[in-house]
Design a protein around this nucleic acid. Structure first.
Lengths: 157, 157
DNA sequence: TGTGAAAAACACGGCTC
DNA sequence: GAGCCGTGTTTTTCACA
């Protein structure tokens, strides 16, 4: 898989912003007509550049108004612990993001739940499933910005 | 706007997972035929439950392989500072998520950039635009989980 | 790679129950 | 509310430059 040219980047940028646009219109914006634009989109999907198309929803309106970031310190750095941990976070759908970190904090989780009671339940469930050395929870009061669109068109290549 | 019934929740769940499904198929899954299903989707969009449809992309393949979480402590809690801060984070597209937090850390940012050099540039740009009392950067080594689909179908109502 | 045009699938909206 | 069915778009495919 070679690097993306400018047109590919523009296409990706458009689709990350709004995936409802008809192919013809995207083509227009990037200076291509339907078919070649469509072929590029297919290729971008096959190459795994575009992974999926989803609807984004308002968490508050779905009853997921509480966001908590949880920092986790592992008791050891064995493959076994890691495996159990991966299994546990994948089994809990309220855990939206998981990052393995550099530094003291080993993992960082973003969790979305309805309220404190739901978080408490989840917290117990997680700590029951996996031995954890240290946990620090940080509560979000307000989501001020959220995007899934990487700024690909800002940069040249 | 009233609460969502079970069918609405199922529809939202499907669309958050995969927005390419034809309405007829979603209808089938939730036990509805085309038209009523379509009408519900329209209503969910009008109510702001479904906010948008986007393509998700692989950050690494777009040249955004480095994720950094940045904790920020504000020098004061004035409306003025807040305004300048909001303007600054909105002007920097590499800042993907911003949360106002409870506790010592006032704000938490998730930033996606190509490499350390790009982060350094961004860091200077941010700290030049806004006076900040304290900044702590946490570097992610690996993104182990990432989803935008809230687990709406797991819970009953 | 790009063009054009045709086929298949789909979204959308009127009308009925 | 839900379902049936027609119409206009859009996606998808194919033949050709």
């Amino acid at each position: 898989m070679e690097a993306l040219d400018l047109i590919d980047r523009k296409i990706v940028a458009e689709l990350m912003r709004d995936a409802t646009l008809p192919v013809a219109q995207i083509g227009e914006k990037v200076g291509l007509s339907q078919t070649p634009c469509w072929k590029r989109i297919q290729r971008l999907q096959e190459n795994g550049v575009l992974t999926s198309r989803v609807a984004l929803a308002d968490p508050a309106k779905l009853g997921f108004g509480l966001t908590i970031f949880v920092g986790i310190e592992a008791p050891d750095h064995s493959a076994e612990w890691r495996e159990v941990f991966v299994r546990a976070v994948n089994a809990i759908p309220e855990i939206m993001e998981v990052y393995r970190m550099a530094g003291e904090m080993d993992y960082l989780l973003r969790i979305a739940v309805a309220d404190m009671a739901a978080f408490d339940t989840l917290y117990k469930r997680l700590t029951d499933a996996v031995p954890i050395k240290n946990v620090t929870s940080h509560f979000a009061m307000e989501r001020m910005k959220f995007t899934t669109a990487y700024p690909v068109d800002t940069r040249n290549r």
